[in-house]
Write a protein that binds this DNA or RNA. Structure first.
Length: 432
DNA sequence: TCTGGGGTCCTAGGACCC
DNA sequence: TCTGGGGTCCTAGGACCC
C-alpha cells in the first residue's frame, strides 16, 4: 500500500502558524515580484480567487473584499516542510519526498494494521507538532493514493484520511472523480478525453487499454493501469537533478546588455551553487531571454542558446563566463527584456570528470574550485550573496557612463519574517 | 505601472554508424 | 531501369507534475 500526504494550502498554512490572525480570512500568497497568486486559503478559493491571478487584478475582481496578500517566503516554507517530512520519516517504513508539500509513504508490512486509524492519527500529530494541516490518502497504487488524498481534503467526514483498500471503494471513488483531476492527466489530455466522451475517472478506467495507448501513449497507459490497481509508476525520486535552472522575471524591463548580463551572472552563480550542492558538474550551459508577451505594443523577441564546456565543471567563474558568452550570442538591441534564465545540464558526478586538451590549466581550474568552495562556506555562514563574483553586481551608471554597483532586488513588499531560521527577523518583529 | 519558477518523461525525426 | 537493413544517439517539441 502507498500513502500520500499532502499539506493543505501549504504556503498559507505556514503563514498562519505564526500569524493566527490570518485564520478564517481569505489569504493568498504571491509569486516573486508579488506577481501572481500561487496559493490560496479555503476562504480565498470559496470567493473564487483563481490560481495564477495577477495580484494587481485582485482589487478589480473582488471590490470591497479584504483579501490578505503575502509575498512568498520560501525559506520559511522549506523549513516547515522539512519538519513535516521528519515526522513522516519516523512514522512510515520509508518515504519519498515528492515536492515541498507532498510525500509518498511506502507502507510495506503494515497491511494488517488499521491504516485508516493510523493515517488519522498521523495527520493529527503533524497538526499538533508543526501546526500544518495535512490530508492523507492510502491505496494500492500511487495514482489511487493521490486520488484518495483529494477525497480526504474535500470531505471533512473522512477525518483527514481516506483509505481505498477494496475494489468496491476503488470503483466508488472513480465514479465521481473528474478525469482531469487524475494525477498524470493534464489539461490537454482532459480536453482530448472530453471529446471522446470520457469525463470521469471511471469512464477512463472503462475504455480499452489499446485505445488508451493509442491516444495517450505509454504514460497514459500507466495511469490507466494504476487506476485498475496495478502499481506501475515507480518512485519518482531523483537523487540528483539532470538539469538545474534558475530564471526570473524582472520587476521592470531591461534594455541594455550590461544589465542583462548582470542578471544572467547571478543565475549562473546560483546554478553553480546548486550544482556543487549535489556534487555534480555540468557540460552544457543554456541561456534564454524573452521580452514581455503581455506588452503587445512592444516588439517581441525570445531566444535561447546552449554552449558546451570543454570540461564539465561547477565553478562559479567558469559558469558565469560561459553564460555571458551565450548571452552575447542571443542578445539583440532594441527590445525590452522581461525575463532571463540559465539552465545547466549534461550533469555528471564531480568525482569522475573527463579532462580536455583545450581546457584551462589545472592550476587555474583548482583556484576556481577553491574560490567557489570558499564562497559556499562564507555564504552558508553569513547568508546568501555575502560573497559574490563582481560581475553579479556590475552595472553602468546611465548618467556618468561609469561602472557602479548594481543593486539587484526582487520585489516582496508583503513578506513575513523567516520565523524559524532567522533570529534577527524575529527580533525585528517583536521590536515592532 | 502590474502577469512565477523549476523540473521530468516521451516521441518523432534526423544524423550517423556498420 | 534497378541502390538494404538494422541499429544508436541527439534534439526539439509537447505532454505532464508541483
Amino acid at each position: 500500500m502507498f500513502g500520500l500526504v499532502d499539506c493543505d494550502n501549504c504556503y498559507v498554512s505556514c503563514e498562519r502558524v505564526f500569524n493566527p490572525g490570518l485564520e478564517g480570512k481569505p489569504v493568498v500568497v504571491l509569486s516573486n515580484n508579488d506577481g501572481c497568486v500561487v496559493a490560496r486559503s479555503p476562504e480565498a478559493k470559496a470567493l473564487g480567487v483563481k490560481e495564477g491571478t495577477p495580484y494587481y487584478q485582485l482589487a478589480e475582481l473582488f471590490p470591497g473584499v479584504k483579501i490578505e496578500a503575502l509575498s512568498s517566503n520560501y525559506t520559511l516554507y522549506g523549513d516547515m516542510s522539512s519538519r513535516v517530512m521528519e515526522i513522516l520519516r519516523q512514522a512510515a517504513p520509508s518515504i519519498e519526498i515528492y515536492s515541498i508539500d507532498e510525500a509518498f509513504l511506502l507502507l510495506d508490512g503494515m497491511e494488517q494494521q488499521d491504516l485508516k486509524r493510523w493515517g488519522e492519527d498521523l495527520s493529527k500529530r503533524i497538526r499538533k507538532w508543526v501546526g500544518m494541516p495535512v490530508s492523507i490518502g492510502i491505496a494500492p497504487t500511487r495514482t489511487l493514493a493521490k486520488m484518495a488524498s483529494k477525497y480526504a481534503k474535500r470531505y471533512p467526514a473522512y477525518n483527514k484520511c481516506c483509505l481505498i483498500d477494496t475494489d468496491e471503494k476503488r470503483l466508488k471513488a472513480l465514479k465521481i472523480f473528474p478525469v482531469g483531476d487524475i494525477w498524470g492527466v493534464g489539461r490537454r489530455y482532459a480536453e482530448k478525453l472530453g471529446y471522446l466522451g470520457v469525463h470521469t475517472a471511471l469512464d477512463f478506467h472503462d475504455i480499452p487499454a489499446a485505445r488508451v495507448q493509442r491516444e495517450l501513449h505509454i504514460t497514459g497507459l500507466r495511469t490507466w493501469k494504476e487506476l485498475h490497481g496495478e502499481s506501475c509508476i515507480g518512485p519518482d525520486i531523483i537523487e540528483s537533478k539532470k538539469s538545474i535552472c534558475t530564471s526570473r522575471s524582472f520587476p521592470g524591463m531591461l534594455t541594455d546588455f550590461e544589465s542583462l548580463r548582470t542578471q544572467v551572472s547571478n543565475y549562473a552563480a546560483h546554478c553553480a551553487f546548486k550544482l556543487r550542492k549535489q556534487h555534480g558538474v555540468a557540460q552544457l550551459v543554456t541561456v534564454f531571454v524573452s521580452s514581455n508577451p503581455f506588452r503587445e505594443d512592444l516588439p517581441q523577441y525570445g531566444n535561447s542558446v546552449s554552449v558546451t564546456l570543454p570540461t564539465p565543471t561547477a565553478t562559479t567563474p567558469e559558469l558565469i563566463m560561459a553564460a555571458a558568452r551565450a548571452l552575447g550570442l542571443i542578445y539583440r538591441d532594441g527590445y525590452h527584456y522581461k525575463r532571463a534564465g540559465v539552465i545547466v545540464s549534461g550533469i555528471t558526478p564531480d568525482y569522475a570528470v573527463q579532462g580536455s586538451l583545450w581546457d584551462l590549466s589545472p592550476q587555474r581550474r583548482k583556484r576556481f574550485q577553491e574560490l567557489s568552495w570558499l564562497m559556499d562556506k562564507v555564504n552558508h555562514k553569513n547568508g546568501d550573496d555575502t560573497l559574490v563574483v563582481a560581475s553579479q553586481q556590475y552595472s553602468v551608471d546611465p548618467q556618468t557612463g561609469k561602472a557602479a554597483v548594481f543593486k539587484n532586488s526582487i520585489l516582496h513588499d508583503h513578506r513575513s519574517p523567516c520565523y524559524t531560521t532567522n533570529l534577527n527577523d524575529v527580533i525585528r518583529v517583536y521590536a515592532r
